[in-house]
């Protein structure tokens, strides 16, 4: 852990940034990857067990917590848990009301799920970088990248979900013809410019989920790398950088979850609107 030679520092960082990958290796068949190279060689047919595990755990925590609050919800005087949950729900509801002008019962719960889930996943970052990997290493698991949002698969996966919803609602609200017209006749309403419009609009459409996913990933990944770098310092000086960075990240965590949520709602709102 402590700063040793150049090699160990590099190894330390790389080790921390490697997911626990299970996949179909060309030589070893279906197995856990024992190194970054092996994981790389697996190509698409692999899955990050740590990302999936932690994200599902956080999702389950969200569902359990909010379901519990929902079951206990009374119209009378609320308890502490209900108060907190209601605050979050109300916050999301107000945000959605401000950004989404149509009527769709899916949007608000979607936004709530996104916000709380991403927030919880990001929150894992505040656990010191070595605790959990060290624990799993003791149990014989070589790799453990704990924060799902530092894995582009996770952020792009959610963005893909949002993208599919954008396509679905665009087609549902505007119809196939309407959606095609929107793609081909904006921003320049002239048949000669249809190819140009199409190119522009399709890029614009694809950039939405890509931007969503990469923004969250970029922020979280960068923060994680900094945490790992700080962890390379001698232990007695670590806190001078670690503490301010962690405090700053309380803000970043919430902000990134909020940005992802609001942008998703805004995109979905655009999908509902006729031009």
């Amino acid at each position: 852990m402590a700063a040793g030679s150049e090699v160990t520092a590099t190894y330390y960082i790389q080790h921390h940034l490697q997911n626990l990958t299970f996949g179909k290796h060309p030589e070893n068949g279906w197995s856990l990857a024992h190194s970054s190279e092996e994981a790389m060689e697996m190509g698409f047919w692999a899955i990050h067990l740590d990302t999936m595990g932690w994200s599902i755990a956080m999702g389950a925590l969200f569902i359990w917590l909010f379901r519990k609050a929902g079951k206990l919800a009374t119209t009378g005087v609320p308890g502490t848990l209900q108060n907190i949950i209601e605050m979050v729900v109300e916050f999301v509801e107000n945000t959605v009301r401000g950004a989404f002008h149509g009527k769709n019962p899916v949007i608000a719960p979607l936004a709530l799920t996104l916000f709380v889930w991403i927030f919880l996943m990001n929150l894992l970052k505040l656990i010191p970088v070595d605790y959990v990997p060290e624990l799993f290493a003791r149990l014989g698991v070589g790799y453990m990248k704990m924060v799902p949002t530092t894995d582009p698969n996770a952020t792009l996966g959610m963005a893909l979900g949002v993208f599919l919803l954008i396509i679905y609602y665009s087609l549902k609200v505007k119809g196939v013809g309407g959606f095609a017209k929107e793609l081909s006749l904006t921003p320049f309403n002239h048949w000669l410019l249809i190819p140009f419009n199409l190119l522009l609009e399709i890029i614009g459409l694809l950039v939405k989920p890509l931007g969503l996913g990469l923004r969250l990933f970029g922020n979280m990944f960068a923060g994680e790398v900094i945490f790992i770098l700080i962890a390379l310092l001698p232990f007695w000086i670590m806190w001078t950088l670690n503490v301010p960075w962690a405090i700053f990240h309380i803000l970043v965590i919430t902000l990134q979850a909020f940005i992802f949520t609001v942008l998703s709602v805004v995109y979905l709102n655009a999908a509902h609107e006729h031009h």
Partner: peptide
Amino acid sequence: NINMTLIGQTIAFAIF
């Protein structure tokens, strides 16, 4: 690496 985790995450997202 981009891999099946992407799909898995999308499915998990949809379920949640």
